[in-house]
Nucleic acid binder design. Structure first.
Lengths: 256, 256
DNA sequence: AATGGTCGGTTCATTATTTACACCAATGTT
DNA sequence: AACATTGGTGTAAATAATGAACCGACCATT
C-alpha cells in the first residue's frame, strides 16, 4: 500500500473513545511495525496533524488540523451554515440531527445537534458513516455522481447489524427506492435500535456531496413522527444545500 | 526527504488567496514532479484531507479535515473557549485579537476577532506565524519547553521585514526580555506597519502551547493604548489558559 | 533486589516503494 | 491550423521505507 495512505490511515484510529495512543498501542492497532509508525507520526507532527503530549509521550490529533479547518471553512463554508439548521431540525423533531460530508471513502460527520429527550441517539463527534449501511450514506450515494454508486456496489459490503444490506443487488434496489422517493431510511442497518432518515445535500453541480439526517430510537418511530421528520428534513436539506452554495437539481422531488 | 512529510507540505500551499490548485500548478509551486504530486493528492483524498472538484478538476482542502477538527475539539477543547475571550479582547482594545497554537514547526492561527475600526489589521484564516518573527511566536517560544527555544535559535532565521531579528544572539536577547516582562512585542518584524503584543497560553504542564495576541497598525500604538492592551491581554490570556485546562506557572508575573 | 514485561526510541541491511522521464489524449490559445 | 498547457499513465532506475534486533528506562511482581 502507498506509504502516505498508510500513514493517514493512522488518523482514522482516533475517535472519541481513543483520543490518544502510545506508540506501541497505535502500532499494534494499525498492525504496522512501530518503527514505521513512529516515523509516520513524526512526519505528521511536522505538519501539525498530530502532536505528542510531552508528559505522557502519547500521540493525539494536532492543532494544525484546526488551522486547516479554518482555511477550508474560509474557502468553502459549510459547517457555519449547517449548525443553526441542525439546531432547528433537532428542535422541530425532538430527535438527534446530524450532517455529514463525503470525506475519503465514506461520509464524515461535520455537525450534530442532539435531541433533548432522555432516550436519544448519541452520535460521537467525527463518526464515519459507511455509505451502504446508513441512511445518510444511502441518501448521498443515490444522488452522487454516477461513478459513486458504481464504486460502492463493487465494494465488499460489511455487515454492521443483521439488517445491513450486504448484497449488491439489495443495495442497488434500495438506492433506486431512495432516488424515487427523494429520501433514505435505514432501520437498524448500522446500529441496532437506531432508525435513520436522511436526505442529500447537493453541491454546485447538482450532485450530492453529503447528507442531512435525523436519527431516532427505532422503537419510537411512529408514522406520525416519520411524517414530521420528513417534512422538517426536506426544509432543512433545501436550506442547507442553498446555504452552502449548492444547487438542487430541477427534477428533484420528495415523495414522502 | 520523507515522502509523508513532503506530501503533507503540499497542504501548506493552500491559503486564503489560493484555496484550490490545478495539478500542474501545485506541482510547480511545490517543485515536485506532477506524477508524484498526483499520487500524493490521491492518497490524501482517500483520507479526506483534500478533494477534487469534479467540474474544474482542481484540488482543495477536504471535508475530512472538518471531521478531524471536531474530534480534536472533543478530545482537547481549545477554540470553543477561545472565541468569546477573543471577542471580548477585541472589543476592549478596539484592535484585532488572535490566538494561535503550536502546529508543526510554527504557530497556526486558530481564532481571530477583528477590530471594528476602519483602519485595522487583517489576519487571514489559518495564517502561519513564524516563531522568531512575530509577537505570538516570541511569547510562545520564551515560555515553551526548553528544547523549543534551543531549536528555534538553531534555525535559519528568515527576514520578513527589515526589523525581523535574524541573528540568534539578538533573538536570544529578545526572548530573555520576554521572559522578564511576561509579554512579547514585535514592531513590524513580520508585516510592515503591524505592531503585535502577545502573551503565552500555557498547557497543563506549565509550558507554553501557543499565544494570545493583539495586532495594531504600528502608527496607532500610543503608550496609553499599549497599557490598555497589555492589561486586557493579561486577563484574557489567564482566562484562556485556564479555559483550556492549562496551568499558569507559579513564578509567572507580568511586568508591563 | 532481582525479575520479567512493557514502554518509547534507534539502528541498519534488505527490499519494495517512490520517483522522474517520456508519452498520451483532451482542451484551450494564438 | 499550429501550438501550448492541461490532467493523467506507464516504465525502468533510484531512492526511501521497512522490520527485526537492540537499547535504556520504567513498573509491577516476586
Amino acid at each position: 500500500m502507498r506509504t502516505v495512505e498508510k500513514a493517514l490511515k493512522l488518523l482514522e484510529l482516533f475517535d472519541e473513545a481513543h483520543p490518544s495512543f502510545g506508540l506501541s498501542a497505535l502500532a499494534r492497532r494499525a498492525d504496522i511495525d512501530k518503527a514505521t509508525v513512529l516515523r509516520m507520526l513524526q512526519d505528521m507532527a511536522a505538519a501539525g496533524l498530530v502532536e505528542q503530549d510531552p508528559a505522557s509521550r502519547n500521540w493525539r490529533l494536532g492543532a494544525g488540523i484546526l488551522r486547516l479547518a479554518r482555511l477550508r471553512e474560509a474557502a468553502f463554508p459549510a459547517t457555519g451554515a449547517l449548525n443553526p439548521i441542525l439546531a432547528r431540525l433537532a428542535q422541530e423533531t425532538g430527535e438527534t440531527a446530524h450532517a455529514s460530508l463525503r470525506a475519503g471513502a465514506d461520509l464524515g460527520t461535520v455537525g450534530v445537534v442532539e435531541s433533548t429527550r432522555s432516550n436519544r441517539v448519541y452520535i460521537e463527534p467525527g463518526l464515519i458513516l459507511p455509505l451502504h449501511a446508513t441512511a445518510s450514506g444511502l441518501a448521498y450515494t443515490a444522488f452522487a455522481r454516477p461513478d459513486v454508486p458504481a464504486e460502492v456496489l463493487a465494494r465488499p459490503l460489511a455487515a454492521h447489524t443483521a439488517a445491513t444490506p450486504t448484497d449488491p443487488a439489495t443495495l442497488a434496489a434500495r438506492l433506486e427506492m431512495v432516488r424515487a422517493s427523494g429520501y433514505a431510511c435505514a432501520d437498524q442497518t448500522y446500529d441496532a435500535d437506531v432508525h435513520g432518515l436522511a436526505m442529500p445535500l447537493f453541491g454546485p453541480d447538482g450532485f450530492a456531496i453529503g447528507a442531512l439526517a435525523v436519527a431516532t430510537p427505532a422503537t419510537r418511530l411512529t408514522a406520525d413522527l416519520r411524517r414530521l421528520i420528513l417534512s422538517a428534513l426536506a426544509d432543512a436539506a433545501r436550506k442547507a444545500t442553498l446555504g452552502m452554495g449548492g444547487r438542487i437539481p430541477d427534477h428533484h422531488r420528495i415523495a414522502a
